[in-house]
Simulated assay, not measured.
Amino acid sequence: MMAESSALDRLTTIRLSRGEGRAALASAVHRIELLDPLVLDPWVGFELSDAYVMSVESAIAAGDLAEARRLAERMRDLPHHREDPHVAVARLIVVAALEGDWQRALVAGDRFREGWERAGSPRVPTLRRAARAMATVHGMRGDTAAHDEWMRIFTALVPKARQTHDQHTSAFFEALMLLHLGRAGEAVQRLDVHPHELRRWYQGIWRPWYAAAWAEAAVLAGEPDAAERIASVQATTAENAVTAALVARAAALAAGDRAGVLAAADALEAAGCRYQWARSLVLAGGADRERGAAELAVMGAVIA
């Protein structure tokens, strides 16, 4: 069983590196199904926890936020995570931030910080995405002090010699906040690497999200290569329902196509991405702007 689990893990990473999010999700979930019936000893517990991590990450890569949430909640409730709440909720924080369920993210963030501090503030690079997502949520809510505190935690989670770990994921989350705040030019500068250069398997998880933000930032900043950027990432983002809609929205914004922006809003709502749905309504303007702004206000977001 352990050998098969290891093989499925390797298959998942290969599929992620190729940009095959849905296939990666299938192999990661198969790994969970293989391990779930086994007696929970330390070795099985480690494998099962890792299988859930990979399944959530693969669901994010595929843009299946509903499945990502379901799996993150199951991971949270694993019995061997009872004493490590920061590990239990880390992936749920990321999913909730992407969905726009910021209240859930805030609650999970409190649990993360309390557990992490109680454990002695261990340096765990794989938990940095949760801290970066929390910083982004607070930044979009206009809480500068909380944003800065989570950035402190983000930095503390990895030794200084490895500060570049997850740098492109971090760039995506910072750009998400900058775009929300109307600072598209800064987002362009932050996303300074072409998405096609993100080739490692763990970069494959976030490649479509980074690519969509990279294209949108260019449109909103009025960059001369905006149309080329959109064309270059359409294949990269196509399999992920959320990022495909975001690139379609960027194209519609570039063309002044309000109907296209609203169509993207519908697709984002169907994909369970409440934040980007509401933001699309704001970007569409007119009467829809007021409705989108109201939805963002419910989340606690500041409106640029």
Rank of each mutant, 00 (worst) to 15 (best):
E83V: 03
H80D: 05
R69F: 02
P79N: 07
R69Q: 09
L40N: 10
W102Y: 14
R82L: 09
W43C: 08
D84A: 09
S55E: 09
W102S: 05
D50Q: 13
V53A: 11
A61G: 13
D77C: 07
D64W: 06
V44R: 15
M75W: 05
E67S: 12
L92I: 04
G63D: 15
A59D: 10
R91N: 05
L71D: 02
L98K: 01
D50I: 00
L71C: 08
V53K: 06
V94P: 03
E99Y: 01
P79S: 04
A96Y: 15
R76I: 04
L65W: 08
R74V: 02
L78E: 07
E73T: 11
L71K: 01
H81V: 00
R82T: 14
A72K: 06
R69T: 05
R82E: 12
L92A: 03
A68S: 07
G100E: 14
S49N: 11
D41H: 13
F46N: 10
V95M: 02
Y52K: 07
A68R: 01
L48I: 13
D50A: 09
W43T: 15
E99G: 00
E67D: 15
A97N: 12
G63N: 13
G100P: 13
L71T: 05
E67K: 05
A62Y: 13
M75N: 00
L92N: 04
S55I: 01
L40H: 10
S55V: 02
G100Y: 01
A97F: 10
L92G: 05
E67Y: 01
R70Q: 13
V89P: 08
H86N: 12
D101W: 14
V53T: 09
W102E: 03
M75C: 06
A59M: 12
I60L: 15
G45R: 00
P42V: 07
S55L: 02
M54W: 01
A61R: 05
Y52D: 09
P79I: 03
A66M: 12
R70P: 07
I60G: 09
E57F: 11
D84R: 06
W43I: 15
A72D: 01
D77S: 07
G45A: 15
D77Y: 07
R69A: 04
L78P: 13
E57S: 15
D64Q: 11
D50C: 04
D77Q: 02
